[in-house]
Simulated scan of single mutants.
Amino acid sequence: MQVQTLIIHEIVMTAFLFITDLDNTLVGDDDALKELNQQLEQHRQDYGTKIVYATGRSPALYRKLTSEKSLLSPDALITSVGTEICFNPQEEIFDPEWADMLAQGWNRDAVVAIAAHYSDLVLQPETEQRPFKVSYVLSEEISSEVLPRLESSLKEKGLDVKLIYSGGQDLDILPRKGDKGLAVQFLRQKWDMDATKTVVCGDSGNDIALFSAGEERGILVGNAKPELRQWYEANKKDYHYFAQADYADGILEGLHHLGFLV
């Protein structure tokens, strides 16, 4: 008589750190967002999962988005392309430790003065000009010519900065130590959360830092922009997942694929 043994593997769910960009990543499909919100909030209540938004938006534009879309209240908010971290978005009090780190070697006035010599750079609205971020609009057609010259000019003046160009128009000049990915590393250490228990989600060039700063699990949504797709193809990792679905649906797909949700 042949005896068959059935082995059932129990899936143990634990808390994880969920970090996502907002525009065109979390936000873009309201029905999918509602479903993702329900699953994430349940996981937060059951296991203590932490939810963080990492956005290029300023706090003012983040508040505007919350009035337009149904977003869960985050455990922390990373704004202005990673240059600001807030643990209580309602009060808009920024983490002083993170600010002190970014302030080292940062000379905002000098950055603005040098950029003023480039007529192709158009300043973004005043709300998007932040203490550790200078932001411009730059046409994609001339970006490949302007960006190397601008970077060279900044280096010649001894300014230790980074240029982040995304969406074919948005240029952000930040302190070298500031971006979304480094902000995530800061939060991981603060909350003692392992990279294997952290997942980041994005769609554009200013999200590349989310995927490249460490070994966090990563989800690229199906509607990712060309600059992120190109980076992914050149830097494939087995812990990064490129979803077929778009927006929040793509995030859900990735969370299931990577084992964060069942």
Rank of each mutant, 00 (worst) to 15 (best):
P96C: 03
P96Q: 08
P96K: 03
E97D: 09
W98Q: 01
A99P: 00
A99I: 03
A99Q: 12
A99G: 08
D100A: 13
D100Y: 07
D100S: 14
M101K: 15
A103L: 08
A103M: 10
Q104N: 08
G105Y: 02
G105E: 09
G105A: 07
G105T: 06
W106R: 01
N107M: 09
N107A: 10
N107E: 15
R108C: 04
R108Y: 05
R108I: 03
D109V: 07
D109N: 12
D109K: 12
D109W: 03
A110S: 10
A110H: 10
A110V: 01
V111T: 04
V111N: 01
V111F: 01
V112G: 04
V112Q: 14
A113F: 08
A113E: 15
I114K: 02
I114G: 00
I114N: 00
I114H: 05
I114V: 11
I114S: 00
A115C: 14
A115D: 01
A115L: 06
A115R: 02
A116Q: 11
A116D: 13
A116Y: 03
A116L: 06
H117C: 13
Y118D: 06
Y118F: 15
Y118V: 05
S119E: 15
D120N: 14
L121H: 04
L121N: 04
V122K: 15
V122W: 13
V122C: 11
L123H: 08
L123M: 11
L123R: 06
P125I: 09
P125E: 09
P125H: 04
P125Q: 07
P125K: 08
E126P: 03
E126G: 05
E126R: 14
E126K: 15
E126A: 15
